[in-house]
């Protein structure tokens, strides 16, 4: 690293500041928008400094939702739905992937490669390309408009299985031999060696999957039929509706900020694992 030449100092800073600013600007505007009243936004007179209505707007969004709608769902309910879905998907995916990767990496058994390819092939079947038939299966199982319907169909994960398989392949054979000599069986080895060794990978995957789960769009759009089951992301888009000037923009912006908080917080507080998780998924 020390040999990397010291460049002209201002240009890199300038480029990075432009980058940071172009990322932050939309958020800044949303923050400002969430502190003004509907009138000033609708007239297009919103200043670039915070207004006096911030607390009112957030309180209204949190407890009642958008006032304009006949029947609006409070943001706290939408956030709760999103949280349950995101955590369900995250833990579900990690749990079933880690055990299936363990089976594929540490056992030799008939049809091993068949199952491996069967899991792998799910990479090629994103929900977006099989919308109708998947919806029909979920409907036939009576899972429409429920958390199980939101979560279970999304927890199969080829990516997570492949990631854990790669991690497991780096566990040296000697360690397995040593464990076997000490009389540890497959399950004991799994709990006492493999899981502790993969702790950081699990943390890393947690970050990525939580964001994946929280940000789901098409699937909840299909599966939720009652407004009370909607997730926060769907809720925002429903609030925008036709998106004319009379929309309650200050409430939408407050909701937008609230919707970003959990995933952004997870990234910021778990930055190290997040980067590790993303990069390792590549290897």
């Amino acid at each position: 690293m020390a040999t990397r030449q010291r460049p002209t100092q201002w240009l890199p800073h300038f480029i990075l500041v432009v980058g940071v600013a172009s990322f932050a600007f939309p958020i800044y505007l949303a923050l400002i928008g969430s502190t003004h009243d509907a009138g000033i936004i609708a007239r297009g007179e919103m200043p670039l400094v915070p207004g006096p209505h911030g607390l009112d707007n957030y309180w209204q969004a949190w407890t009642r939702g958008s006032a304009e709608r006949v029947k609006s769902i409070p943001v706290q309910a939408l956030m709760f739905n999103s949280l349950v879905m995101a955590l369900g998907i995250t833990f579900g995916k990690i749990a079933i992937s880690v055990i299936s990767a363990y089976a594929v990496a540490f056992f030799v058994f008939p049809l091993r490669m068949f199952f491996f390819w069967m899991i792998f092939i799910t990479l090629m079947l994103p929900v977006e390309v099989r919308i109708i038939p998947t919806y029909k299966v979920v409907a036939d199982l009576g899972m429409v408009d429920s958390f199980t319907g939101l979560i279970i169909p999304l927890i199969a994960s080829a990516t997570a299985t492949l990631l854990f398989r790669q991690v497991f392949l780096t566990i040296p054979d000697e360690l397995v031999e040593a464990a076997k000599i000490d009389g540890a069986g497959a399950l004991r080895f799994f709990w006492s060696v493999v899981i502790p060794l993969s702790r950081t990978n699990i943390a890393a995957l947690f970050v990525i999957l939580f964001i994946y789960g929280w940000n789901q769009y098409l699937w909840p759009l299909l599966i939720t039929s009652s407004r009370s089951m909607e997730t926060i992301v769907i809720g925002i888009v429903k609030m925008i509706g036709t998106g004319d000037a009379q929309t309650d923009w200050q409430i939408i912006m407050a909701t937008t900020i609230l919707a970003m908080l959990p995933p952004v917080a997870v990234i910021l507080f778990m930055q190290r694992w997040f980067v590790k998780g993303l990069i390792e998924a590549e290897k």
């Binding site: 932050a24 964001i211 769009y217 992301v233 939408i252 912006m253 995933p263 990234i267």
Partner: peptide
């Protein structure tokens, strides 16, 4: 860090912004 966080923003939320 400041260039990383937009990864967490849902596509539909980005649309709203």
């Amino acid at each position: 860090t400041l260039l990383t966080w937009p990864y967490a923003v849902a596509p539909a939320v980005a649309a709203s912004l």
